[in-house]
Simulated assay, not measured.
Amino acid sequence: MKFQEQLYNAELTDSEIRIADFIISNPAKLESLTIQVLARSTYTSNASIIRFANKLGWRGFSEMKIDLIKAREVQKYTLAEINPNVPFEDNASIDQIAQDIMHLMQRAVVESNQFIDEAAIFQATKLLYDAERIFIFASGDSQVRAESFQNKLWKINKYPIIANERGETSVNGANLTPKDCAFFISYTTKSANSNRIARRLRASGVPTILLTARAESNLGKNADVILQVPQMEVSELMKIATFASQTAFDYVLNVLFSTLYQIDYQKNNARQHILDREQR
Rank of each mutant, 00 (worst) to 15 (best):
F3S: 09
F3E: 07
E5T: 08
L7I: 14
Y8T: 05
N9Y: 08
P27E: 06
A28G: 04
S32M: 11
L33Y: 08
I35E: 05
I35D: 04
L38G: 01
L38F: 02
A39V: 02
A39T: 03
S41C: 07
T42G: 08
S45V: 08
A47K: 08
A47S: 15
S48T: 13
I50K: 02
F52V: 03
F52I: 04
F52N: 01
A53D: 00
K55W: 04
W58I: 01
F61E: 00
S62V: 05
S62Y: 04
M64S: 06
A71T: 11
A71Y: 08
R72K: 15
R72Q: 14
E73M: 11
E73L: 14
K76T: 08
Y77Q: 10
L79S: 14
I82Y: 00
I82G: 00
N85E: 15
V86L: 15
I94Q: 14
Q96T: 15
I97L: 12
I97T: 11
M105V: 06
R107S: 15
A108M: 11
A108S: 15
V110C: 09
V110N: 06
E111Y: 00
S112D: 02
F115A: 10
Q123C: 03
Q123D: 10
T125I: 03
T125A: 05
K126S: 13
K126R: 15
Y129M: 07
A131Y: 00
E132G: 10
I134W: 03
A138P: 09
S139W: 05
S139V: 12
S139G: 10
G140C: 05
G140W: 02
F149W: 11
K152C: 00
K152L: 02
L153N: 04
W154A: 09
I156S: 06
P160N: 11
T169V: 14
T169N: 07
A174W: 01
N175T: 03
L176E: 04
P178V: 10
D180V: 08
S186M: 03
T189H: 07
A192H: 09
N193S: 07
I197L: 14
R199P: 02
R202A: 13
A203R: 12
V206Q: 04
V206G: 04
P207Y: 13
L211G: 10
L211M: 11
N218G: 11
I226S: 06
Q231D: 14
M232D: 05
V234F: 11
V234Q: 14
E236Q: 09
L237S: 05
I240Y: 14
A241D: 03
S245Y: 07
A248V: 05
F249C: 12
V252K: 09
V252Q: 14
V252D: 05
V252P: 03
V255S: 02
V255T: 10
F257G: 03
T259C: 06
D264R: 12
Q266I: 03
A270Y: 00
I274L: 05
R277P: 00
Q279N: 14
Q279C: 04
